[in-house]
Structure formats: C-alpha cells, structure tokens
C-alpha cells in the first residue's frame, strides 16, 4: 500500500499533466482556426485549376502527343507513394492512419508484383515507414523548420517528384494525406496525381474557348503547376487535420486526467480516513487499558 505522501505526489503529477494537455488543446484550437482559414483560402485556386485542366485535358487525353504527366508512361510497374504526415505526434491516430493506408496500398501493390517506392514528407511518417520499408524510401523531407506553410514548400516537393518522373524512376504517383472534414473527422485519402485522373463530369462546361498560346502548350505549363497545387492543398488539409486531431486527442487526455484525479483523490481520502480511525482506536484502547 502506497503511503499518503506517495499518493499526494501522484495526484499532483496527474494535475500537472492535465494542465499541459489542457494548454496543448487550447493551442491546437487556435492554430486549427488559422490552418482552416489557410485551407479555405487555397480552395478557389485549386478548384478553378482543376476545372480549367479538365476542360483542356479531356480534349487532349486521347491524342497521341499528350504529355506523359496526363497520359502516363504507358506502364504501371513502378509506383511512387508520396506520403504526407505531420511533424509531431500527440495527435491521436492522425499520423498512423495515414501511414496505415499507405502501408496497405504498398503491400497490395507488392502482392501484385509491382515495385513500390516511398517519398515521405513529414518526420512522423518517415519514422513509422522506415521500420518496414527502409530500402524503398527514396527520399524524405521534413518540414519541421517551416513555420508558415507556403506555396514554395509545395513547389519544392513537386519539383523533386517531377525530376524523378522525368528520370523515369516511376510510372504512377499517389499522394497520401488526411482530408479535413471537421474537428472530429479526418479522412486519410489516397489521390493519384501522376498520371492525372480527369474526373468525368468535371468538364461539364460546353464553352468553346480560344487558346492563347496553343492548347498543348498551355497544358505543358499547367500540368506541373497543377501537381504543385494538389500537393499544396494536401499539405494544408493535412495541417488542418493535424490540429483537429491533436485538439480532440488532447481534449480526451484532459478528460481522462480529470477522471484519474477523481479516482486517486477518492482512494487518498479513504486511506487517510482509515488511518485516522485506526489511530483513534489505538488511542481509545490505550486509554481504556490505563
């Protein structure tokens, strides 16, 4: 049986932990608001971009001269999985659910006899994937030093991916990130970005545009750009999801700590009262014996 002093120390330490988780929750809440605004601010650009692209692409996809970013290399032997995760933990299942999705995909692809390569963005994903797929990770990047996610970061990643694509290192590239639905719901998502999947119906607009310069020239300019935009959107969604996940994880932790404190205090008080009663009995029986 722990002594009263031990129990007091334990309660105090639980209280200290609760203070930390509470503070982290509030920090995550305020950062979430900012991340959410950033994600929303990026949306019009990304949406407009995909509309324009699908308009041009649906016309160009069938033609033999279509750029490989759109038409693919004609093979699907080597897959590159671009896994975007967070830099820090303490965010519930946020990182591991993205990693799990990527891992399942990788194993399924390997079972089909395909080659799988990884490009990890974010420290947590790299650490988790390294255990199993160390040799298959071709590159990893951490954005730890980045304070405010900018388009430059996404462009940087896109450039690296494109360089590998141009060098013929892979045929298909899939992006893994967590889509931000709400504070309590973040959905890990896989999105194929090379070759680009043009959604049917997205090109609903029947307007016939004039192109200046020619369509294929615009397309060759737009496709790499679009890649960066998609990655940027994924990073922003990820960022918002991360803070959402962290906020609910810390909220849970705070509540658990409260519950623990309640239980520990109960045990402490019982023990204290039992001891007082025991001492009283000792005193009384001592007095009677006199």
């Amino acid at each position: 049986m722990a002594s009263l002093k031990d129990m007091r120390v334990r309660i105090a330490s639980t209280k200290a932990t609760q203070k930390i988780t509470k503070a982290m929750q509030m920090v995550a809440a305020s950062k979430l608001r900012r991340a959410q605004t950033a994600a929303e601010a990026a949306r019009p650009y990304a949406d407009k971009m995909s509309v324009v692209i699908s308009n041009i692409a649906s016309a160009a996809a069938g033609s033999p001269g279509a750029p490989p970013l759109l038409a693919g290399t004609g093979r699907d032997q080597v897959h590159l999985l671009l896994v975007c995760t967070g830099e820090r933990g303490l965010s519930g299942a946020f990182n591991s659910s993205i990693v799990r999705l990527a891992r399942e995909r990788a194993l399924a692809l390997s079972a089909q006899g395909k080659d799988v390569k990884f490009f990890c963005v974010g420290r947590k994903g790299y650490e988790q994937l390294r255990r199993q797929f160390d040799k298959q990770i071709v590159e990893h990047l951490d954005l730890r030093s980045v304070r405010q996610l900018g388009f430059v970061n996404a462009e940087d990643i896109a450039k690296k991916v494109l360089a590998r694509f141009d060098a013929g290192e892979f045929d298909v590239c899939t992006l893994f990130y967590s889509q931000f639905k709400s504070v309590i719901a973040q959905v890990p998502t896989a999105q194929q970005i090379i070759p680009l999947v043009v959604e049917e119906g997205a090109a609903a607009s029947t307007t016939s545009y004039e192109y200046e310069p020619e369509e294929d020239e615009i397309l060759t300019r737009l496709l790499p750009r679009n890649l960066a935009v998609q990655i940027f959107r994924a990073l922003l969604e990820n960022n918002a999801s991360f803070y959402g996940a962290q906020m609910s994880a810390m909220d849970n932790a705070t509540r658990n700590a409260g519950e623990m404190i309640r239980k520990q205090t109960l045990v402490y008080n019982r023990t204290r009262q039992a001891q007082i009663t025991k001492e009283l009995i000792e005193i009384i029986s001592g007095a009677e014996a006199v």
């Binding site: 308009n55 041009i56 307007t207 004039e210 200046e212 310069p213 615009i218």
Partner: peptide, 19 residues
C-alpha cells in the same frame, strides 16, 4: 500581360484561356 502580348478584357469578351 499575356504570353503573346498584352490584352484588355471588357464585358462580353469571347471565351479565352490564356497564359
């Protein structure tokens, strides 16, 4: 400022996509 020269857009311009 278009790639192939500056151009002005007024209301009722024909549909165009330009770099």
């Amino acid at each position: 400022p278009g790639v192939e020269g500056d151009f002005g857009v007024l209301a009722g311009h024909a549909p165009v996509v330009a770099a």
